[in-house]
Simulated assay, not measured.
Amino acid sequence: MAGSLQDQLLKAGLANKQQANKAKAEKRKQTKQAKAVKKGEVFKDPEQLEREQAIAKAKEEKLQRDRELNRQREDELTRRSIDASCVQMLMQNSISMPHEGEVEYNFVDGTTIKKLYVNKTLQEQLAKGNLAIAASKGSYILIPAGVAEKISERRPELIISRQKVEEIDPDDPYADYQIPDDLMW
């Protein structure tokens, strides 16, 4: 009785050629997997690979969402700190206005013309551009031009009105004529 068990089963008629080939393929697959396990390689079925890829993709998407949320939080913190520093600069550098100002100073806030009642020296400083008008908690305050410049770099919407110091054109024929102080618009 020489030969393998498979040959003997085929001769006895207990198995056919197709079953023998199937058994050989199974045996080859098992030995290949056993060798791969020894080497550290593991053959995975396609479903398991798809699951692992889906899990890896979900982790990557979660990381992206977390990064975006962190960036938004940092932007919000930065915006809040800028707001706080601007409000602090406004409060520390505000110039007190007289309660009963004798001169009205007109300025534009958005699309409307507003009035502030100030004294003569404040009016001159506003006209020359040494002072600026800023919005603070629903009211208007006067601040120095240097502070207004710093605030407008960070939050330009807080500065309502600021006169620009105009350079005098040397070829201007009306340069010798001054605008009257009592001219109001």
Rank of each mutant, 00 (worst) to 15 (best):
T121W: 06
E60F: 08
K11Q: 10
D75I: 12
R79G: 10
E41F: 15
L14I: 12
Y105A: 02
N16V: 14
V42G: 12
E50F: 06
R51G: 08
A54H: 06
V165F: 11
Q88W: 07
G3S: 01
Q6T: 13
E61Y: 07
R80A: 01
A127S: 05
N93A: 02
I159K: 04
M1A: 10
L131N: 06
S161V: 05
E157R: 00
C86D: 04
A25H: 00
S152A: 09
T112K: 15
Q125R: 14
R73E: 01
K22T: 12
A12R: 08
K35D: 15
K137V: 14
K29F: 13
Y117W: 08
D181W: 07
R155C: 15
W185Y: 09
K17A: 14
N93R: 05
I160V: 12
G3V: 00
K29Y: 13
I95F: 08
E167M: 09
T111Q: 05
A2P: 11
Q123K: 15
T78H: 12
V42I: 03
M97F: 04
K39R: 08
A175P: 00
Q53F: 06
Q64K: 01
E149F: 13
E52W: 00
D75W: 10
Q18N: 14
K24V: 02
S161F: 15
K38Q: 09
A25G: 00
I179D: 07
E74M: 14
P180V: 04
K115S: 09
V87K: 14
S94F: 05
S152P: 02
N130A: 05
A2C: 01
E166W: 06
V87L: 15
A54Q: 15
E100D: 10
S85T: 12
R65Y: 00
N16R: 08
R67G: 02
N106G: 09
L122S: 04
Y105E: 13
I55Q: 12
S139H: 10
G3L: 01
A127K: 13
K150L: 14
D182Q: 05
A132P: 05
N70F: 03
E50S: 04
E76P: 04
R51W: 06
I55D: 03
E74A: 11
E74V: 06
Q48C: 00
R28K: 15
G146F: 12
Q64S: 13
P180W: 08
Q48R: 11
